Amino acid sequence: MALSYKARRRWSLVILLIGLPAYVVIAVTVVDWLDRPSFWVELLIYVTLGFLWMLPFRFVFLGVGKADPDATPPEDGPGREG
């Protein structure tokens, strides 16, 4: 079932404002369980986790930054030359 443009915009906000901070807390907690590995290992873990969080949600973010494809274009009003 495909999500509408408005639904994808709303879900992307929920994911970015609630889900991403929660994911950051979880990632820091997991790294903390590893007794603070060396800098390079820790950096590799954060980069990997930073990439992996978006994979399940890529369909939600696809095209959200573009104009609504289902919206009707605005009609030219008075005073607009064209």
Results as ranks from 00 to 15, higher is better:
Val25Tyr: 12
Leu43Pro: 03
Leu20Tyr: 15
Trp33Gln: 12
Val60His: 00
Gly63Cys: 02
Gly19Gln: 00
Ile15Lys: 07
Phe57His: 08
Met54Cys: 14
Pro37Thr: 01
Asp35Ile: 05
Val24Cys: 08
Leu17Ile: 10
Tyr5Asn: 01
Phe57Ala: 02
Val31Thr: 10
Gly63Trp: 03
Arg9Ile: 05
Asp32Ser: 14
Leu62Thr: 11
Tyr23Val: 04
Leu16Asp: 14
Val31Cys: 09
Val60Ala: 06
Val60Cys: 07
Phe57Cys: 02
Phe59Gly: 11
Arg58Gln: 06
Phe59Arg: 12
Phe61Gly: 00
Trp11Leu: 15
Val47Pro: 00
Ser12Leu: 05
Arg9Leu: 12
Leu20Trp: 14
Ala7Phe: 06
Ala22Ile: 10
Ser4Cys: 00
Phe57Gln: 01
Leu49Glu: 05
Phe57Asn: 06
Leu49Ala: 13
Arg36Lys: 15
Arg58Asn: 05
Val24Ser: 02
Val14Asn: 09
Lys6Cys: 00
Glu42Met: 12
Ala7His: 02
Ala27Gly: 01
Leu52Cys: 04
Ile18Glu: 14
Phe57Asp: 03
Phe39Thr: 08
Leu44Ala: 14
Phe61Glu: 01
Arg10Ile: 12
Leu34Gly: 05
Val24Met: 07
Thr48Pro: 04
Val30Thr: 05
Asp32Lys: 15
Val24Trp: 09
Phe59Pro: 11
Tyr23Ile: 03
Ala7Met: 06
Gly19Thr: 06
Val30Gln: 08
Trp53His: 08
Val28Lys: 13
Leu34Lys: 08
Gly63Leu: 00
Leu16Thr: 11
Arg9Pro: 04
Val24Asn: 05
Met54Pro: 03
Phe61Arg: 01
Tyr23Arg: 03
Gly50Met: 05
Trp11Gly: 09
Leu44Trp: 07
Leu20Thr: 09
Val47Glu: 00
Ala7Arg: 09
Ile15Met: 13
Phe57Trp: 10
Arg36Ser: 15
Val28Leu: 15
Thr29Asn: 09
Arg10Pro: 02
Glu42Leu: 08
Glu42Phe: 03
Val60Gln: 03
Val14Ser: 07
Leu55Cys: 03
Asp35Cys: 04
Val31Met: 12
Val41Asn: 07
Ser12Val: 07
Pro56Val: 02
Leu43Ser: 10
Leu34Glu: 04
Ile45Thr: 02
Ile45Val: 12
Ile15Arg: 09
Leu52Val: 08
Arg8Leu: 00
Ile18Phe: 13
Leu13Gly: 11
Phe59Asp: 11
Trp40Cys: 07
Asp32Val: 12
Val24Glu: 04
Tyr46Asn: 05
Val14Glu: 07
Val30Arg: 10
Ile15Asp: 06
Thr29His: 11
Phe59Gln: 13
Leu20Arg: 15
